[in-house]
Amino acid sequence: MNFDAQQIVQRELDSGEKLIWAGAPKQGTVFRGSDIFMIPFSLLWGGFAIFWEVMVLSIPKDDAGAIAYVFPLFGLPFVIVGLYMIFGRFIYDSKKRAKTFYGLTDRRAIIISGLFSKGVKSLNLATLTDVSLTEKSDLSGTVTFGHENQMANFFGGNSFPGMGGANVPKFELIENAKDVYSKLRAQQKG
């Protein structure tokens, strides 16, 4: 068990509740399947937005009048979005995972997360019906609670602030995912 995760999850337990497992998602920069689409798209978007901004900033101010001031302002939001898509989303995702902890008790699955404020998601094991496991060759993986929207994942689902609400709860990018999945299923049966 991850010691930090164990301490943090322990604080959320009810009286008489027993902690079975505690962990956290993989830390650092993580590339996902959606990045096959998102990286080239972000480079095209960001590259064009930066090109636009450089070109409009090079317009002589005295020849263009108000356009020389309006066009750079118009392009600025596109540059900001482009820079976020190119590298900001990786920083956001990494910081968000650094503040995420998972727990499995004899009664529920607990997800503690939040970049600026702590949120606690509690899933009653007795009422969970759709639990799935995705495992990689290194035995890491994800335990998902509910039906995943694959289209949202393809377009970077979690990589944009505010978009995480559409995703189903999960123990994402954990070590020994099958072991955690087996412990969860055993608690549901017992």
Rank of each mutant, 00 (worst) to 15 (best):
V30G: 02
F31T: 00
R32C: 07
R32E: 13
R32G: 10
R32I: 09
G33Q: 14
F37N: 00
I39C: 14
I39V: 15
F41E: 03
S42F: 15
L44E: 02
L44W: 12
W45I: 02
A49S: 11
I50G: 03
F51N: 07
V54N: 10
L57D: 04
D62M: 07
A68R: 09
L73A: 07
L73V: 13
F74N: 05
G75L: 12
L76E: 09
P77K: 12
P77G: 08
F78S: 10
F78M: 14
I80V: 15
I80G: 05
I80K: 05
L83V: 00
L83T: 00
I86D: 02
F87P: 01
G88A: 05
F90M: 14
I91E: 04
Y92H: 13
Y92C: 09
D93Y: 14
K95N: 00
R97Y: 05
R97S: 01
G103R: 00
G103V: 06
L104T: 07
T105H: 13
T105K: 07
D106H: 15
A109Y: 08
A109P: 13
I112W: 12
I112D: 14
G114E: 04
F116N: 04
G119K: 15
G119T: 15
S122C: 11
L123R: 08
N124R: 08
N124M: 04
L125N: 08
T129D: 05
V131N: 01
L133H: 02
L133K: 03
E135R: 02
D138E: 12
L139G: 11
L139I: 09
S140A: 08
S140V: 08
T142L: 11
V143A: 02
T144E: 13
T144A: 10
F145N: 00
G146T: 04
